[in-house]
Computed example of a mutant assay.
Amino acid sequence: MTNQSPKSSLISEVNERVAVRMTIIFGSIWCVYGFLVFSLIPLAAPAWQNTLLYISNCIQLVALPALMVGNAVLSRGADQRAAEDHAALMEILNDVRNEVTELKTVINDLTRKTDEVAHRPPSEVVSISDEAVINVTDEAPHVTPPAPTS
């Protein structure tokens, strides 16, 4: 947690906004066109060449640090978004891992139960319901009536 005063925070915010705005302006195609026209002025007025060279150097001295600060501020936002995306993806990955673990448990239970049924000895008497019992060892199928209930 920073202990900046409100005045210092305001100045820092204004500086960052100016740097970002300058980065956007210097990164536009219109700035390229403006500098192209600026660079062609000595062709029309050769006497102004030294003055224009001085102005050009001043622009470079101001623009370079402003562009660096603007890029740092803009990349801070991108870094924050990347961290948030990473956290969300890790949460999704953990959910998927939990679901896969649950699926593996269900598959293992089904496999175990299937193996138990496959290795169980065959039964001689099969009861379809409470009313009919079939003896599978008899040659002719016959149904035994249920015992009378009292």
Rank of each mutant, 00 (worst) to 15 (best):
C58T: 02
C58M: 05
C58S: 03
I59S: 01
I59R: 05
I59W: 01
L61A: 00
L61T: 08
L61R: 02
L61G: 02
V62S: 03
V62C: 00
A63Q: 03
L64Y: 03
A66Y: 06
L67D: 00
M68T: 05
M68N: 08
V69A: 03
V69G: 00
V69W: 03
G70M: 06
N71Q: 09
N71A: 02
N71R: 15
V73C: 04
V73N: 01
L74G: 01
R76T: 02
G77C: 13
A78V: 13
D79M: 12
Q80I: 08
R81Q: 04
R81M: 05
R81A: 01
R81P: 07
A82V: 01
A82C: 07
A83C: 10
A83M: 15
A83G: 07
E84I: 03
E84M: 08
D85C: 06
A87P: 10
A88F: 15
A88M: 14
L89M: 06
L89S: 09
M90C: 05
M90S: 06
M90R: 12
E91Y: 08
E91P: 07
I92E: 07
I92N: 09
I92H: 14
L93K: 15
L93N: 10
N94W: 09
D95Q: 15
V96I: 13
V96P: 12
N98E: 09
E99W: 15
V100S: 08
V100Q: 09
V100H: 08
V100E: 02
E102H: 13
L103R: 12
L103I: 07
K104P: 06
K104V: 00
K104M: 04
V106W: 14
V106N: 05
V106P: 11
V106F: 13
I107K: 14
I107L: 08
N108I: 00
T111I: 05
T111A: 08
R112S: 04
T114H: 07
T114P: 05
T114I: 04
D115R: 11
D115P: 08
V117E: 04
V117Y: 06
A118K: 13
A118Q: 14
A118H: 11
H119I: 04
H119K: 15
H119G: 06
P121T: 00
P122G: 12
S123Q: 11
S123P: 12
E124L: 08
V125L: 11
V125T: 00
V126R: 11
V126M: 12
D130F: 14
V133Q: 10
V133M: 10
N135C: 00
D138G: 04
D138P: 10
D138Y: 14
E139F: 15
E139D: 11
A140I: 07
A140W: 15
A140H: 15
P141M: 07
H142K: 14
V143E: 10
V143K: 14
